[in-house]
């Protein structure tokens, strides 16, 4: 059973090694002549005005929170969908209630304007 996952572990190691190897190849084969102008952050030819780690729009944060909620919902839906023929009517009604509660939340977000970008 778990034997099936061994190739995946090996594949992960291979992929990481491939990634590292490619960076190393680039470093070995390519030139390495740093200077201050070349290594300054790109800002259309200007000197960088200020630190780039600035404040950003709170909506990105909101999207991340909504994502967690909905992704959890998907995580709950996955096993339910696979076992759909076994959970029967009770399982179906229970999941519809759960979805209904989440849809109420979704409508609330929508009406509150959490999904607006202009």
């Amino acid at each position: 059973m778990l034997n099936n996952y061994v190739p995946i572990l090996i594949f992960m190691a291979v992929a990481l090694i491939m990634g590292v190897a490619m960076v190393v190849i680039g470093r070995v084969l390519g030139p390495h002549r740093p200077d201050t102008e070349k290594n300054s952050p790109y800002e259309c030819g200007f000197e960088a005005f200020e630190d780039s780690r600035m404040k950003f729009d709170v909506r990105y944060y909101l999207v991340a929170i909504l994502f967690i909620i909905f992704d959890l919902e998907i995580a709950f839906l996955f096993p339910w969908a696979v076992a759909l023929s076994e959970v029967g009517m009770l399982g179906f009604v229970a999941m519809m209630l759960f979805l209904g509660i989440l849809v109420v939340g979704f409508i609330y977000e929508w009406k509150k304007g959490a999904l607006e970008w202009e």
């Binding site: 680039g26 470093r27 084969l29 030139p31 390495h32 290594n39 952050p41």
Partner: peptide
């Protein structure tokens, strides 16, 4: 791409 420099910005 292999023969290009990998630039790492100062900051």
């Amino acid at each position: 791409l292999m023969f290009k420099e990998i630039i790492v910005p100062t900051n």
